[in-house]
Amino acid sequence: MKLTDPDYPAVLDAAVEILRERARTGQPMTYGELSAKLAERKFDPIPPHRGIMAYLLRDVCLYENEDGRAPMLSAIVVNKVSKEPSDQFSALARSLPFSRSGEWTWRDEQRVVFARYNGS
């Protein structure tokens, strides 16, 4: 899968749907789980580490959030071992259009995502 593949917009829509569903449960999802859920929907493989996954998660954060003010949905996607998002997530959060402050942490973002999608 590449960003230029005709199926990429459908993969992005599916990833957003999958992550919103998981956010409603208040539980994080690993990169591998997201990769497997996309495979269940018959998309070309999205490896859980690096490559297209990083771009997909960036685009998930920008989905209906061009100004970066809404919670970054991919905050709930974590490494299986560390239970934390990759360093790329924090770098993205501090870049435009998100521009999260120096006081910000990924845990704060994750709490806001869960609150938004589970009604808390």
Rank of each mutant, 00 (worst) to 15 (best):
K2G: 08
K2P: 00
L3Q: 12
P9Q: 07
V11M: 13
D13G: 07
D13R: 14
A14D: 03
A15K: 02
V16F: 05
L19Y: 03
L19S: 02
R20L: 10
R20Q: 15
E21W: 09
E21Y: 06
A23S: 12
T25I: 04
Q27C: 08
P28H: 10
P28W: 04
E33Q: 15
L34A: 05
A36E: 13
A36I: 07
A36S: 12
L38I: 00
L38Q: 00
R41Y: 03
F43E: 05
D44C: 09
I46P: 00
P48R: 04
P48S: 06
P48C: 07
R50M: 13
I52E: 11
I52M: 12
A54L: 10
L56V: 05
R58P: 02
R58M: 13
D59P: 02
L62M: 14
E66P: 13
D67F: 08
D67N: 14
R69Q: 15
P71K: 07
M72D: 05
M72S: 05
L73V: 04
L73W: 00
I76R: 00
V77F: 03
N79M: 02
V81L: 12
V81N: 12
V81F: 09
S82N: 11
K83H: 12
K83N: 11
K83V: 00
K83Y: 02
E84L: 13
P85T: 09
P85F: 00
D87N: 13
S90P: 04
A93I: 03
A93R: 01
R94W: 08
S95Q: 14
S95W: 10
P97L: 09
R100N: 06
S101C: 12
G102E: 15
E103A: 14
E103V: 12
T105F: 01
R107W: 10
D108T: 12
D108Y: 10
E109R: 06
E109T: 08
R111G: 04
A115R: 14
Y117P: 03
G119V: 07
S120R: 15
